[in-house]
């Protein structure tokens, strides 16, 4: 990693800690576990930054967020943060005219030895529901790499720190809760796996601690 990227990464981590005092809760998962695919609820553009902040540095170095190319290639600043600093795996979310298959792109990055951060809701959740229905991408990725371990990660409170359309963050304490891993079962159907993954993630929300509404 280049020096400028490292400095930027460090500055972003320090800033994230200053604003959120983020705390990791390992609820049935261990931070020492090897390569895996973290799947998290998605309420803010800062979500993967919080996960990244909480991971111990050795894990952090091999963890890449999966993100929409349309958003992260839009401006030079986003490109710098997304591509250079966080080394994001960019996928084309536009079904009609995309040239690369997102599942293949993710599987390739996984084969390269990286852990991945994915947001199976596919888009930011701006509703009052705790979790949107999952898109099927996570199932197809599990099908493509059946040995991959999927670790649920619940991010709490970040949506209050930075609501949509606001550019000044409010300092509030956030938690990132990691749960026990799941794997695709033999012959498990798409619906069954997506339901199981969604339940595993929802089950973590009650461990996140903060007693806000």
């Amino acid at each position: 990693m280049r020096i400028s990227n490292q400095i930027a990464a460090m500055a972003i981590v320090v800033f994230a800690r200053l604003i959120t005092a983020v705390r990791g809760v390992w609820q049935g998962a261990e931070p020492t576990a090897g390569q895996c695919i973290y799947f998290a609820n998605h309420a803010s553009h800062g979500d993967f930054i919080l996960i990244w902040t909480i991971l111990p540095p050795p894990l952090r170095r091999v963890t890449r967020p999966v993100a929409g190319a349309d958003y992260w290639l839009k401006s030079p600043v986003r490109r710098f943060i997304g591509c250079d600093v966080f080394n994001a795996v960019l996928i084309d979310r536009n079904r009609e005219n995309r040239t690369s298959d997102p599942i293949e792109v993710m599987a390739e990055a996984f084969d390269g030895g990286s852990s991945l951060i994915v947001f199976p809701e596919g888009t930011r959740n701006e509703t009052d529901a705790p979790l949107l229905p999952f898109k099927s991408g996570i199932y197809h990725l599990a099908k493509a790499r059946p040995d991959a371990r999927f670790v649920p990660v619940w991010i709490d409170n970040l949506n209050r720190v930075m609501p949509k359309g606001k550019f000044i963050p409010i300092p509030l304490i956030c938690t990132v809760t990691f749960g026990p891993e799941i794997k695709l079962g033999d012959g498990e159907s798409k619906e069954a796996f997506l339901d199981r993954a969604r339940e595993a993630l929802l089950a973590l929300s009650k461990f996140s601690g903060a007693a806000h509404e």
Partner: peptide, 22 residues
């Protein structure tokens, strides 16, 4: 700052209070 951050975390503040909290 640290105390206010803790206190605000436990309040009912919502999107409409964003600017007041900021």
């Amino acid at each position: 700052f640290a105390a206010l951050r803790e206190f605000a975390t436990l309040t009912n503040a919502r999107r409409a209070d964003h600017w007041a909290l900021a």
